[in-house]
């Protein structure tokens, strides 16, 4: 594992960014349809960062977040992680379940609503990625966790940590027009998957 840190050329980085941009754009469109709200996506960040600094990159290890996690199976395995700050997840759940946010506990129903939103985003994202790369990619059923960002992330990173010191983080931020729901969509390809994706898109 001497090539631990893969150095991406500018062209590869730009292509990955563009690819993520289109995937996230389609995901945002399907979420807007579901919520009947305008959802915007920011230009994604594509970064290689040490595994140990991933919690900081997602807003701090102790930050209370709601995370929806999918494992991605198929030609380019990896993990998809959606992170919402707690209050944003409440708003999102409120929009979906049609009840007002009463500041109470985050119920099963709320969790299920956020999971569903996650499934829709992930489905649309992977569909676009599949069209782009012609790779077969299938998401697992979602898992949802409400806890410290660090705790949530380390479970995911452990799988990566066995093979590499660095994680490729493709981070797309989405936000609705009233700025009440903001979330992060992370794609973390397994180490070997990056090469598969890069060669599939021809860079």
């Amino acid at each position: 594992m001497s090539k631990d840190k893969i150095v991406l050329t500018d062209r590869q980085k730009d292509t990955l960014k563009e690819m993520a941009n289109i995937c996230a754009g389609n995901a945002a469109t399907s979420l807007s349809q579901l919520l009947n709200k305008k959802i915007e996506m920011n230009v994604p960040h594509v970064d290689f960062i040490p595994v140990s600094s991933v919690p900081e990159a997602v807003g701090g290890a102790e930050e209370l977040v709601i995370g929806v996690v999918f494992q991605v199976f198929g030609d380019a395995p990896g993990v998809i992680l959606l992170l919402f700050p707690q209050k944003d997840a409440r708003v999102l759940a409120g929009v979906l379940t049609g009840k007002n946010d009463d500041g109470g506990i985050f119920t099963e129903m709320d969790q299920s609503a956020v999971k569903e939103a996650g499934s829709i985003l992930t489905g649309a994202y992977l569909n676009t990625l599949t069209t782009f790369t012609q790779l077969g990619l299938i998401p697992s059923t979602p898992g949802i966790v409400m806890d410290m960002a660090g705790a949530l992330i380390d479970d995911i990173l452990i799988q990566l940590a066995a093979v590499t010191e660095y994680a490729l983080l493709i981070d797309s931020e989405f936000i609705d027009a009233e700025k009440s729901v903001k979330g992060h969509f992370f794609l973390l390809p397994n180490p070997g998957s990056l090469e598969t994706i890069l060669s599939a898109i021809g860079v």
Binding site: S52, S53, G60, A61, E62, M148, G150, A151, L152, D155
Partner: peptide, 23 residues
């Protein structure tokens, strides 16, 4: 002390590790 790291120190230091999950 970050993920996959270790530190030693003496009093009055406070060693911290934030957000441990399966670590």
């Amino acid at each position: 002390v970050g993920m996959a790291d270790m530190k030693v120190a003496v009093a009055p230091a406070v060693l911290t590790s934030l957000g441990l999950g399966s670590c």
